[in-house]
């Protein structure tokens, strides 16, 4: 039998016409953004249970198990405290340096782990992607959820540290919730963008540690934020100072410090910081989502 005999001649229709008449859709067609969002919403249980499964399987083999969720941030804080608080004592300009440092480290860590895991969200799950059909954005979103869960434990640890170093418990602490939400949206967008980039260019994974380190040093995590405005070079170029101080992580960290601590030097007034935080969350959250969606059909290619 030859190929032409195979092309269905029952009705004498061209194949494309036959497909149209029976309402078949072309494989690999990108769904519209609203349709994709609806689809993603109907997979919310999958996202939640996948996130759960990831945590369990990551910590399942360790002896201390879920205790690591609390131990990791504690050890992290201890390391930075020893180096920057005791050995180098960079505390100049900040009254209560330990809570100041820990807030910065914890908030930064949140975004850092999301980016690190996000880069591999697609490339590390090709087996799953090639086997089952689900909206691919589920994967970076699940990764963000894992880190959000880890962050609950970190926040509890952080609050105890802050209280332990003599900061009072005030109503301003309630602001932690909206800050946390904004940063989570920002992180989700970042995870999706990183996932697509990482699936296209495997080299990105090698660069992420360096990018995150530059970001860490540029976000006033380890030193007082006033170092920027007192820097002569930055003072000479006002725009450069704006760019440095618009850094989204610096904004989130500053806001969190402002909420948890009494006397903290800030990069800008709280009002400006809030507007910047909302702006960053919207732009990166939505932008990352749209960017990820545009690549939806190519993720199985590997």
């Amino acid at each position: 039998m030859t190929q032409t005999a195979v092309a269905d001649s029952d009705t004498g229709l061209p194949l494309r016409e036959l497909a149209r008449r029976h309402g078949l859709t072309a494989a690999g067609k990108l769904p519209s953004l609203p349709a994709y969002s609806r689809q993603l919403w109907s997979y919310r249980y999958f996202i939640a249970s996948y996130a759960n499964a990831k945590v369990t399987s990551a910590l399942g083999k360790t002896r201390l198990g879920m205790l690591w969720q609390v131990l990791t941030p504690l050890i992290n804080a201890a390391v930075y405290y020893v180096i920057f608080g005791l050995v180098l004592s960079t505390a100049r300009g900040v009254d209560n340096f330990v809570p100041y440092l820990c807030t910065g480290v914890f908030i930064f860590q949140f975004t850092q782990s999301v980016v690190q895991a996000g880069v591999q969200a697609i490339s590390g799950n090709l087996g799953l992607i090639r086997a089952l059909h689900f909206p691919r954005a589920s994967l970076p979103l699940a990764i963000t959820m894992v880190e959000v869960r880890n962050m609950f434990a970190s926040m509890a640890v952080l609050m105890i540290i802050v209280l332990g170093f003599g900061e009072p418990l005030t109503f301003e602490w309630l602001l932690v919730v909206p800050i946390f939400l904004l940063q989570s949206v920002f992180n989700a967008g970042l995870a999706m963008a990183a996932a697509r980039l990482g699936s296209k260019v495997a080299d990105i994974k090698q660069l992420v540690p360096f990018i995150m380190r530059i970001w860490l040093y540029g976000s006033a995590v380890l030193y007082p934020v006033t170092k920027f405005s007192s820097n002569e070079h930055l003072q000479a170029h006002k725009w450069a100072l704006y760019v440095v101080e618009a850094n989204p992580l610096l904004v989130f960290i500053d806001l969190m410090r402002h909420a948890l601590m009494e006397e903290v030097p800030l990069a800008a007034s709280p009002m400006v910081l809030w507007l910047e935080a909302i702006g960053w969350a919207l732009v990166v959250g939505l932008g990352g989502y749209v960017y990820f969606w545009r690549g939806e059909k190519g993720y199985g290619r590997g």
Binding site: R16, L24, A27, G28, R130, A131, H133, K297, G298, R301
Partner: peptide, 24 residues
């Protein structure tokens, strides 16, 4: 729909599901 076609087209009713032994 996991590998894009270079030329021509593939149409399907609903979403075909691939079941392979290497599904991880």
């Amino acid at each position: 729909g996991l590998l894009p076609v270079e030329k021509g087209a593939i149409y399907a009713a609903g979403q075909p599901s691939l079941l392979g032994v290497n599904a991880a």
